[in-house]
Amino acid sequence: MKKRHFSQKYLRIETLPTLFCPGCFNGVVINALSKALEEEGVASLRGYVFVSGIGCSSWIPSPYILADSLHVLHGRAVAVAMGVKLANPKLEVIVIGGDGDLASIGISHLIHAARRNLDIVVIMVNNLVYGMTRGQQSPTTPRGLETTTTPYGSFEYPIDMCRVLRETNANYVARWTIAHFFQLKDSIREALFRLRRGFRYIEVVAPCTTYVARRLGLKPSSILRDLLKNSKRVEEIRRGDTIGEDSIVVGIFKSEDKPGYIELYQDYSMRARGVQSG
């Protein structure tokens, strides 16, 4: 019998190949997640719930990952994930979504979940544009990039979600690019299996092959080189340093082990019960 690839136990084989564009880096994210699960000895994804919104990366769990998954409204994955996690804290809830879904239309839910230190893992696949709707500017689009809605080059300041979330009560905030496969995989392991609680955010910079790379005339291999070349480790940056607009700050922005929302709510419930009996 042909040996099955290790990731097959996590995937709905009948849905493959994926509908992603040739060369799409979503596959790297699936691979890193699978590898992290494999290395932790996860045999099946029973007990895991994936929640995703609308966009290319939201298709990673729905339908490709073999687990419970909720493919919800644009921007609302984190809000739905909160309902799932609070209703059944035993479930491991993972949100996978893009920069349009999580950092634009869904940014309030993301920030508030981080503020609450809600016990979920969020993987934001930052492809720098709206891919599914044909490459419009997103809140993470670098200045100067030509998109379908900035045909003369984007002039808006982009948002850096890692810096935003670092200032909240989130337990874990990290960013890697698809050129940092092993670091990405290790971050997923760290978030899911070491920290285990609180809000854990991992961003993956994965430029859209169709609407960023092709537009710039870049091949996937040269994107990888560029990403490595332009990456700057967060620990090497000192307060007051100016970071060039081309630079991508990568690394672990924050790693703490504060109690998450679930524990806080359980304490609160105990107090509420005390009031009743007292």
Partner: peptide, 23 residues
């Protein structure tokens, strides 16, 4: 579970997640 959420959009969507989780 009682949770005061950030807006009504979060409320309805949290209900959806909770309902699928059995609430």
């Amino acid at each position: 579970v009682f949770v005061q959420v950030e807006d009504e959009i979060a409320a309805i969507n949290a209900l959806i997640g909770a309902s699928w989780a059995g609430s």
